[in-house]
Simulated assay, not measured.
Amino acid sequence: MAKIKVPNLEASTFKGWTFVLVAGVVLALLALLDRGTFGATATGSTGCVMTVAAAQLNVRPTPGTESAPVDTLKQGDQVDAQRVVTNGFRQLAGTGRWALDQSLVPRAGSSC
C-alpha cells in the first residue's frame, strides 16, 4: 500500500505576503460559496432578470403554496424570470420554478 507523504510545514511557510495572499483567496472563495453566488446567478437569457428583495424566498414547482419548495433563494440573489405571473407567482427560468412576485424586483434595464 502506498503511503501518503505530508510535507513538513515550517513556521516560515506562514509568514509574509504569501500567507496574506493565500488566506485572502481562500476567504474570498468561502464568502462566494456562502453567499450563493455560484448557484443563483442570472444569465439574462430571458431578458428579464429579477433580484430577490425578501430575506428568503421559496421557489415552488407550481404557482401556489400547495406544494413544498424545490429551492430557496436569498436576498440579493439574481434569477432569470419569465414575464408570466399567475396567482401572484412569477415563473422563473427552467421547468417548474415559481416564486412570489411581490418578493422580486426587476434589475435595472431588464424587460419584465
Rank of each mutant, 00 (worst) to 15 (best):
L104W: 02
V70Y: 03
V22P: 00
V26N: 08
S45V: 14
R97M: 02
K3R: 14
R107I: 00
A11Y: 05
T46D: 09
G36I: 05
V70S: 05
K74W: 08
G94W: 06
T13V: 07
K15Q: 15
V84H: 10
G44E: 11
N87C: 11
L73I: 02
V6H: 11
L92I: 03
A28R: 08
A31P: 03
L92Y: 01
Q102E: 11
K15D: 14
G64L: 08
A68G: 05
K74N: 14
R90S: 06
G24F: 07
V20I: 15
W17T: 09
G47P: 02
V49C: 00
N58K: 12
D34I: 10
T95H: 08
V84P: 04
G36R: 09
L27H: 02
T65G: 04
P69R: 03
F38K: 07
V26D: 05
Q102N: 07
P61G: 03
G47E: 04
L30D: 08
P106R: 05
T51H: 05
L92W: 01
G96C: 05
T13C: 09
L33G: 15
A68F: 06
T13A: 14
V59S: 06
P69Y: 04
A99M: 05
T37I: 12
G16R: 10
V49R: 00
V70F: 04
R35S: 15
G36V: 11
C112Y: 01
A23K: 07
L104Q: 01
L30Q: 10
T41I: 09
G36H: 07
W98K: 00
L57I: 11
N8D: 12
L27S: 11
G109S: 13
E10V: 12
P106I: 04
F38V: 13
T51P: 05
D101P: 00
D77W: 01
D77F: 01
F19Y: 09
S110F: 05
T86H: 05
C112A: 06
L104D: 01
V59K: 05
D34S: 14
G94A: 09
A40R: 15
D80W: 01
T37Y: 12
P106Q: 04
G64P: 07
N87E: 14
R35K: 15
G16E: 11
V25E: 00
G76T: 14
S12A: 13
K15R: 15
A99E: 02
S111I: 08
N8M: 07
T62Q: 13
F38S: 11
F14P: 01
A108S: 13
A42T: 06
G94L: 10
A28H: 09
A40D: 10
L30I: 11
L92A: 01
G24V: 06
